[in-house]
Structure formats: structure tokens, C-alpha cells
Design a protein around this nucleic acid. Sequence first.
RNA 1: UCCCCGAUAGCUCAAUUGGUAGAGCGAGCGGCUGUUAACCGCUAGGUCGUAGGUUCGAGUCCUACUCGGGGAGCCA
Length: 502
Amino acid sequence: MQNQHIKISEMGRHVGEEVLLKGWLSKSRAGGKVQFLMVRDGSGLCQAVMEKSEANGELFGEVKHLGQESSLEVAGVVREEPRSVGGYELAVNDVRIVHKTEDYPITPKPHGPDFLMKNRHLHLRSRKQWALARVRHSVIEAIRDFFNNNGFVLIDTPIFAPAAGEGEQTLFNVDYFGEQVALAQTGQLYLEAAALSHGKVYCFGPTFRAEKSKTRRHLTEFWMVEPEIAYVDLDGLLEVAENFVTHIIQHTLKHRRDELEILERDTSSLEKIQVPFYRLSYSDAVEMLHSEKAQDYLQGQLKEKRGQLEELQSSIEQLTEEQKAAKKQWQKDKLTHQITQAREQTGELTEQIKNIPLHMELAKNFKWGKDLGGSDETIISNLHDRPVFVHRYPKEIKAFYMKPDEEDSRVVMNFDCLAPQGYGEIIGGSMREDSYEALLGRIRELDYEEADYQWYLDLRRYGSVPHGGFGLGVERTVAWLTGTKHIRETIAYPRMMGKIYP
RNA sequence: UCCCCGAUAGCUCAAUUGGUAGAGCGAGCGGCUGUUAACCGCUAGGUCGUAGGUUCGAGUCCUACUCGGGGAGCCA
């Protein structure tokens, strides 16, 4: 074991050399005279091939009985091998067993989400979860780079917060030396204060929402980055936001190709994305929902889904035939599994088909003044091939600190950014009310506790300037970039309603 | 909070109209020189989520509860 220890990702540079890999056995296939060990070491995956010889007979037998996820060190010669993952493999000379694992719970077969979440601490080792974590890492790297390289100063805002930022019902309450405080839902108010010191600032950390939402888009603890800029207007904010999102995409595409491929993400829709994004006022969005175009789109969807359903049903019939004809038991089971899956998809499609007329009704009858629902957002984002900014929402459905539009006092100067392909809202932002009187009026109108907001009002007493900012949800962004259906896989230890272990 | 679906072996799932619990994978043992969800043979593995009810008889029907999945509302 004198060989140089290298990472699997570096194997291409060591062809023909004797090296040492240190890692874990992710899978193995044993033959009588040769066995294939799939080794992972955190940097990648490598097939190590061990041939039985007179000298290594005992070791060969021992390695053969190693359980999945045993940890080991493997010495051998790197060689090119097109049949192997990554194009290289290791011809094994020696193996040192570090730890023998027995009965590893997660097998290379399908598992249910509940089981995987209960074994999240082990699930993190699986290939897709590994890839997902690395994409997340790069997304966060891109976020930090963008702000650090564009003159923003990082400000860490508190997690114990005395007053509600928005929506008082969704707070997690904490006992703070006998006083009831809440876990922060946003750092924004504190950030506004800091923006008046530095001009451009951002905060980045976890935020907490006690929303009782059990959907694929919600967590109770999620990471949000929030920039805040002094002397900016709404157009300026939109420009920052679109440059920011584009930077994240390009950075990820540049550094995480392999991971996106493991995740089977079709990157072509991401490659296309460039500035400027579409800009649509709320009022125009409402009109779009009422338009022929929206109805046509939904009709098209209906037709497409029905086609898919028919296709699925005929494939189920075919699979059933095949299953009857299958001789081997394992073939039958494989087909049974496929049929089960197809049936599940059928159920999903049927549900979607059932919902489309409902969505058509919702869109057609959408009343100005209401908030956009999930289906409305999906319609709007799917009518565009790039992200869409929807701006200037009705004042009544938005937070107290948002600044009304001078040209139309019914709406505020805010915006949401809708990611394509129905991944929903990834950004929410606004211009902030900078007039003392107007802000105080709003606080009184909504019957908030005036005393709690004195420091916030101070910002309008002393050198108030036009300012604004936005927040981007990391998990939703990662879900979109990776094409992950459920947000719970985009963070190592998801916190959701009723889920706190491990 | 509301609506829909589900809970059977370690895992993924079967079990006809209610009639004494099955398979694959995984695990163990053996066989096989290159496997890509390998393959072949054998072995072990179960309080059918919990509690009650209907019935001669309940995994299957009914009620309540618990847990999970999907969605609505709300949101990033």
C-alpha cells in the first residue's frame, strides 16, 4: 500500500500508474474468478476489477463477501476501459478492508420516499443525492460570487426576531428567556437598515416558516439570499435580478455538467436562458389569463395529456401481454413493476386532465385583485421560454412595506420571478416605502404594533432614500436547475411539516 | 384547516366474489472469466399500521385513530 493516494476524479491523469483509492464499496458483482467492485470516494465512481490468483485467493474470498457500503482502500493500476463508468478502471493488486458493513438498508433497487427520508443520513451517499448536493454547492457559490463581485457587503441578520416580517400566522415561536420571540422569516427589515450604511448589501441564511403546507414546493426551513440596494428603482432591481439568475445558471452549467447528466436534466432549456427576462405587469398577466392564448394553451395541454394517457394505456396492455408470456419469475416481476409505475403515471395524468378544465375556469374568471394561484403561475410561465417577471401587484395582497406605484396607487412596485416549466416563484421582491408618513399610515391601517416598528421607521426619519431588494429561494432554484420534482431532495436534511428525523 | 390516495417480509409489491400469507430484490451458502438492475441452485425471513365492530370465518367489509403520499389554501 505504498502507492500514491489519488481521487477517482483524477484517474485520467494517472493511466498506467499504480495508485491507491480510498473509499466505499457502492456495489459489487462477484464472479468465480473475477469480481467487479464499484468504488466511490466522494469525487466520483470507479470500477475496480479484481482477478483471482493463487497469491490472493484468501483476500479474493474475503472481498467477495464484503457488504455494500463497506469502506476500503484499493491499490492497483489505472487503465483506460470504455466499458467502465468514466472511461477508466482500476486493475486491483491489493485491497485493505477498513470497515465491514452488513445489511446496508439502501439497495440499488427502488425505494419509497418515506423510507429514503427516514434513512436520509445514508441516502446522501446515493449517486443522485450526491450530484444534487454538488449542484447546490455550486448554486451557493454562484450566489456568493455574484454579490461579492458586484460591490455588495454581506450582512448577517438575526435569526431570533421580535416582530413578524410578513404573515403573522406562519411564525415559529421560541421561548427567549421568558419572552416569546420568533424564528426569522426574512432578514429584510434589518437589511434595509444596513443598505443605508453600505449602499448595497445582502444576507444569506436559513429562514423559517410554519406554513402547514404539504406540497413539493415547501419546506419549513429553507435558505434564502436577499440583496437590498439603496438608490435604485424597480427597473434597476429587475436588471440585478435577471443578471443574478443568469449568472447562477451559467456558473452551474459550467461547473456541474456531469452532475446534471447524472440527474438526467435536459440542459437545453437552461442554455437558452439569457437577459432580458420577460416583464409582465400583474394587470397584463390577468389579461393574459383571460386571453385566447391561455385557453388555447390549456386546450393543447389537454390534448397532449390525453394522447399521453392513451399511449400509456396501450403500453400497459402490451406490458400485460408480455408479462403473461414471460417465463422467468424475475421477468414477470420486472414487468409487474413497470406496470405499477405506468398505472401510477396514469393516475397522475388522469388527475391532471381532470384539473385542466378547472384551471381554464380559474384563468377565465380570474378577478383583478386576487393573488395568482399555482395554476395561474404555471400557465404564465409555460407561455414563455425564459423566466418571467410579474410586477405591480395589487396593494391589498402585498406586505405593508411595499411602495405604491405613483402612477397607479392601487398597485405596489413589487415583482415575482417565475421560473419556467412550472417550477414556480423563485424570487419575490419590491421597492420599499421610503416616506415616513406613508409607512406609518400603512402600519396603523393594518393595526400593527407601532412600538415594534420604531427603529424601522427611523430609517425613514434619517436620510431616507428610494431602495428595494428581493429574496431568492435556494431550494426552489436548485429544484428548477436540476429538474427535481420535490424540493425535499435539494437540501441535505429537509425540514417539513411532521418531519424532523434525522 | 380542507379534499383525494395509501399502510402486507429489511425493501418494492401481489393475494380472484370474505375461506388458514406469495414473489422479486436484499441477506446467508454454493456455482459461473468482463459484469452494467448480471445469471443459476438452495436456505432463512410475517402480531397483514393501531383499536374496536360485522361474520361460522376478515389482509380483504364498516368505524375511529396514527403515520405516510399527492393536492388546495399560503408562500421562496
